[in-house]
């Protein structure tokens, strides 16, 4: 007698029907080095990001998109926004939905750019922007209809540097993303970003430092357009080795050997009698080479 193979036909069609959400975080902070030197680069980046976003929407009907601007003083969603856009009509042969993405994004981005004060803040607060994106993703996951599958990823496009002052925020968002199965991709435009690269490694995302800004769109199409399930079928740049060394809390230096406070786990590069983070007083200097084995009395 024949044997019924349960649910064999269900497997193959599944991946094509899942909705995938792409949240793009565009760093528009005028304080970043790249933009301070040549502000017009932003236009090129915005154009590339919008075309890339539309290409993502073009892949599948179900695909969803959100774009955020990470600005010097705040981050906000620039697409989709709350307004109604029934009045956006085609102006040429471009698909109406793509026209809408372009217009809304540019309009809201212009608002963000003009709202800014004069203070120059060199470091973009990308960790906060990622945190907002994660909240947004969490809401969509909560409210999706039963049985639907939503794959989410975040693409960070930035020319900023990353300093260790946001270290804890970065780590919290990376671990949250890992828990929620959100992939974080990073497209570095200007400088190498060690911390964000760790995030890519933790969440199985891709990290790319764009060699030439001119070809930004092409790089994005090649590397970031394929969704994670398709990525394994393509040959993509191999992951770089990630430097997971700690930076000490006192001098922000990368260290090989350090001292860790047993109460708050702060890392110091030299022994100090008091913890600057939790103000604990250390009674006895730990012997440098040997881990203290004997118990000390209060």
């Amino acid at each position: 007698m024949n044997i019924v193979l349960p649910e064999e036909s269900q497997q193959d069609a599944s991946s094509a029907e899942e909705t995938s959400l792409l949240v793009i975080i565009l760093d528009s902070n005028p304080g970043q080095k790249m933009l301070r030197e040549s502000p017009h680069v932003l236009t090129h980046c915005v154009d590339s990001v919008i075309v890339f976003a539309n290409t993502h929407l073009m892949q599948k009907v179900q695909n969803k998109l959100a774009i955020m601007a990470c600005h010097s003083k705040s981050s906000q969603f620039i697409y989709p926004d709350q307004g109604k856009h029934g009045d956006i009509r085609q102006v040429d042969g471009q698909y109406e939905a793509f026209t809408a993405v372009e217009k809304i994004t540019k309009k809201n981005l212009a608002k963000v750019l003009t709202s800014d004060g004069s203070a120059v803040i060199t470091e973009s607060l990308l960790a906060g922007a990622i945190a907002m994106a994660l909240c947004y993703i969490a809401r969509l996951q909560r409210t999706k209809p039963p049985g639907a599958k939503l794959n989410c990823r975040i693409l960070v496009v930035t020319g900023s540097s990353c300093s260790t002052s946001q270290y804890m925020n970065y780590m919290n968002v990376f671990f949250t993303a890992q828990k929620q199965n959100v992939v974080i991709d990073v497209c570095a435009l200007d400088q190498h970003l060690n911390l964000l690269q760790q995030g890519c490694d933790i969440t199985n995302g891709l990290y790319l430092k764009v060699p030439q800004l001119q070809g930004l769109l092409q790089y994005m199409m090649w590397v970031f357009l394929p969704e994670p399930p398709i990525r394994e079928k393509l040959v993509l740049p191999p992951p770089l080795k990630v430097d997971y060394r700690a930076a000490c809390f006192c001098h922000r230096q990368l260290i090989d050997i350090g001292y860790v406070c047993s109460v708050c786990l702060s890392i110091f590069c030299k022994f100090s009698p008091i913890c600057t983070t939790c103000h604990t007083v250390f009674k006895m200097p730990a012997l440098p080479a040997v881990k203290p084995k004997k118990r000390k009395k209060m």
Binding site: C70, L125, A127, G128, A131, M168, N169, T176, K179, Q180
Partner: peptide
């Protein structure tokens, strides 16, 4: 929902961490 998500999973406040005055 965000209140619960922020305190149970994320552990950083999205508002504070996007503002240069409060993020640290």
């Amino acid at each position: 929902d965000c209140d619960i998500f922020v305190h149970e999973t994320l552990h950083i406040c999205p508002g504070c961490s996007t503002n240069p005055l409060t993020f640290q």
